[in-house]
Amino acid sequence: MSTFVLVPGAGGVGWYWHRVVPELERLGHQAVAVDIREDDPHLGLQDYADTVVTATGDHRDVVLVGQSLGAFTVPVVAGRVPVRLIVLINPMVPLPGETPGEWWEATGQPQARELNDRLNGRSGDFDERVHFLHDVPPDVVAAGAVEQRAPSGTPFKQRCEIDRWPDVPTRVLVGRDDRFFPVDFQRRMVRTRLGLGIDEIQGGHLVALSNPVELASRLDGYARGFL
């Protein structure tokens, strides 16, 4: 049995994992969905890491899972507590010393999203309904409306305080239907920054909300060494 410590993306809402936690527990694991007050402008990346370290506590056999912006927090945490495995989901993989604000242009994400939109007949600027919620069930979208928090701008100006990626086995799982971080973009970015390949899963950027059963199964497989 593993303990999955689940780090959310921008906004820091632990509710993001609410459909995955019971699936992991059904498979025999423990799951800790971390809630981070990323709407508080007084808190930054180191505070986010502190919150995750506290939530991890004395758990053993920890699998640290980071969604999107959570990838900036995960390597810092892995340098402070024992972690058996890191799993990144649709991640913003940082370079040492990079800020989340610098990440977008450094990786070419805006151009990749715009190209993907054009190729698929979409036009216009980023739209949460189009790029995030397109495959999330309507009842989950409605429930999430009261749970979401807008992230502050504080962490986007702060550097990822690592010298290198942690010496921890790392897997990267991406939604093949992600419209925000298109799969080809993620494949290139992960190869360039981590020297790793990616695994794909059905779903978009918010795969924990749109495809929780398969996501939990994939996480279980990683923890057991099956995948």
Rank of each mutant, 00 (worst) to 15 (best):
S2E: 07
T3E: 06
G9W: 08
G9I: 06
G11P: 09
G11I: 01
G12M: 07
G14N: 11
W15N: 12
R19W: 07
V20K: 03
V21R: 08
P22Y: 10
L24N: 07
H29W: 10
H29E: 07
V32C: 10
A33F: 08
D35I: 06
H42I: 01
G44T: 02
D50S: 13
T51G: 10
V53Q: 12
D58V: 10
H59P: 04
R60M: 05
V62C: 02
A71P: 04
V76M: 15
G79E: 15
V81E: 07
I86H: 06
V87P: 13
L88E: 11
L88P: 07
N90Y: 05
V93I: 14
P94L: 05
G97I: 05
E98M: 12
G101A: 00
E105N: 12
A106M: 10
R118C: 01
G121P: 01
G124L: 02
F126P: 08
F126D: 08
E128I: 12
P137N: 09
P137K: 14
G144F: 03
Q148L: 14
Q148C: 06
R149W: 04
G153M: 12
T154A: 14
T154I: 03
F156G: 02
K157N: 12
R159Q: 14
I162V: 13
W165Q: 10
P166R: 13
V168G: 02
V172W: 05
V174L: 10
R176I: 05
D177H: 14
D178I: 06
D178M: 07
F181V: 09
F181C: 08
V183P: 01
D184A: 15
R187S: 08
R187A: 13
R193Y: 09
I198G: 01
I198W: 03
E200T: 13
G204H: 07
H205F: 07
A208G: 15
P212H: 06
V213N: 07
E214Q: 15
A216R: 12
A216W: 09
A216F: 08
R224T: 07
L227R: 14
